[in-house]
């Protein structure tokens, strides 16, 4: 009995031959969409978080409004606003030389997802940066460090450790949300599934998609847990024998040690 025969017990092999490759391509499209928008959204989110924490009133107010808008309305409405809304201003974009960007569903979806996840990530970064105790900043100032250096060498690394877990959750939410791209003619995993279903009317295809999404999300969750354990390995209690040092731990490090503690 070959592997194929065993597989035949679980799924329809004929269906697999017809749509198997398409599903793999769909996973590739989903992965690209999420990877690009999550990374760009992270960079934009960090900038937004810094603006939100700045002492300039208008900057704080503007980023606040941005974050409120993108977190408070459905991603679906945002995607349609970008793709159908901004895409309807053809003459305007042609003048600016940007029509090639707003013409494509792919780039519009990327933009919508990036702007959306940036708002969520901004809140994650903001919370993490604020959780670094003031004393860290004061100590760095006392040592005569420049503000930018303080941020890059003292605040940012400690904040990132607090960010890790919520960022992982956001990544998983993005993978799930990316299924919405199928509604603007993108053939991601969800889009491929809908296409295949509309041709074959075989409900099994939706179950394939469900299993594939669950596998992807579960893999990401486990990989992220490994990553988190590795990045916080210097903080684990067992490695800190001297009581003096333990007392000196900041609140951030303590939460990083025991993220589930209330």
């Amino acid at each position: 009995m070959t592997f194929r025969d065993i597989l035949g017990f679980v799924i329809d092999l004929d269906l697999l031959d017809r749509y198997g490759w398409r599903f793999l391509e769909g996973i590739g499209v989903t992965a690209q969409l999420v990877a690009i928008s999550f990374t760009l959204g992270g960079a934009l989110g960090l900038l937004l978080a810094l603006a939100r924490l700045s002492d300039k009133g208008p900057l704080r107010w503007l980023t606040g409004a941005y974050i409120y808008f993108f977190r408070g309305s459905p991603l679906l409405a945002q995607l349609f606003l970008l793709y159908y809304g901004l895409g309807s201003l053809r003459a305007f974009w042609t003048d600016l030389g940007l029509w090639w960007f707003f013409r494509e569903a792919w780039s519009c979806a990327l933009l919508a997802f990036t702007l959306n996840t940036a708002a969520y990530q901004a809140e994650i970064f903001r919370g993490a940066i604020r959780s670094v105790p003031r004393g860290q900043r004061e100590a760095a100032a006392a040592l005569g460090m420049h503000r930018a250096v303080t941020f890059a060498k003292v605040i940012f690394p400690q904040a990132m450790i607090v960010c890790l877990r919520p960022l992982g959750n956001e990544l998983i939410l993005m993978i799930k949300a990316s299924a919405i791209a199928s509604l603007v003619t993108i053939y991601d995993l969800m889009g491929v599934t809908k296409l295949a279903f509309s041709r074959s009317y075989d409900f099994e295809l939706y179950l394939w998609a469900a299993v594939l999404y669950l596998l992807i999300v579960e893999c990401i969750r486990r990989l992220w847990a490994v990553l988190e354990r590795r990045l916080t390995r210097h903080l684990r209690a067992g490695d800190l024998p001297q009581p003096a040092q333990r007392n000196g731990l900041s609140r951030v490090t303590k939460t990083a040690l025991k993220p589930n503690a209330q």
């Binding site: 799930k176 299924a179 599934t193 809908k194 939706y206 179950l207 469900a210 999404y213």
Partner: peptide
């Protein structure tokens, strides 16, 4: 773990 859209379609068609 499932996208909400997929859950909805599975419930609807299924």
């Amino acid at each position: 773990g499932l996208p909400e859209l997929l859950t909805l379609l599975i419930v609807y068609y299924g």
